[in-house]
Nucleic acid binder design. Structure first.
Lengths: 120, 120
DNA sequence: ATTATGCTTCTATTTAACTAATACAACTGT
DNA sequence: ACAGTTGTATTAGTTAAATAGAAGCATAAT
């Protein structure tokens, strides 16, 4: 289901996160599907369960899966994921806006910039 | 002119950057003023010239000073600084917008959010 | 109780950040 | 030209953080 690339310089937990994101967004994994258990995936990839868990924790934090202790991890619906990611985006947006206001950038100027970028 | 705090957990170069930013923005240092030379400041703080240089490089990158090889480093005018910082801000803004568009967030929604934040 | 599941804690290792040492290059005044 | 400034680049050592592994704990299902 997942294949590691040891030539890749990125940490393995990050590779795992990225592959699952892809599987979910592309519809291979659907809402409610069971994720492979931490242990079974660790065995099949010949790596440590802690590394898998780290990947799953990140996927959960970003809204891609949810996890129930003792039961397993499950895929979130893509619309929930989108909503969660949008929320995170607005958080970052808010911070950047605060910075921008400190730099005396006018809201109108920001909106104008958005419209410009949107049409490209 | 500058005092280091070794209880502070932040790296030294970062402390230096922060102090000079403050000196410049508060008007203690003005446009065209000579920054202390890399070596003299290193001696007076009893640290390595390379560390000072790293701090100066960052200050230059952020538009607070400009530097002429063989001559020294000089304070930039506060309006130039503002302009430079605004440019950097728009760069970050642009990146975040691209992300937002991928998440199917509408430009109108963004602008509405800006107006909301501006009035707080 | 057994056997699945995820979680926590601790340790080793690897990687990146930071600082220092040293040598180089450019400009100024004489 | 030369001595004395200045900033710059390269390299190496040290320290701190990120990563991955090992082992045991906690929760849930049957």
């Amino acid at each position: 289901m997942i294949l590691l690339d040891y030539k890749d310089r990125r940490p393995i937990y990050e590779q795992i996160v990225e592959k699952f994101k892809h599987l979910i967004l592309s519809g291979v994994l659907n809402e409610g599907d069971n994720m492979p258990s931490v242990r079974s995936l660790a065995v099949s990839l010949s790596i440590n369960p802690g590394t898998i868990q780290r990947a799953y924790a990140k996927l959960e934090q970003e809204g891609f899966i949810y996890t129930v202790s003792g039961k397993g991890s499950f895929v979130t619906g893509t619309d929930s994921i989108l909503k969660e990611q949008q929320n995170e985006w607005f958080e970052k947006f808010k911070e950047l806006l605060a910075e921008g206001f400190l730099l005396e950038i006018e809201p109108e100027q920001m909106c104008a910039y958005i419209k410009k970028e949107a049409n490209q």
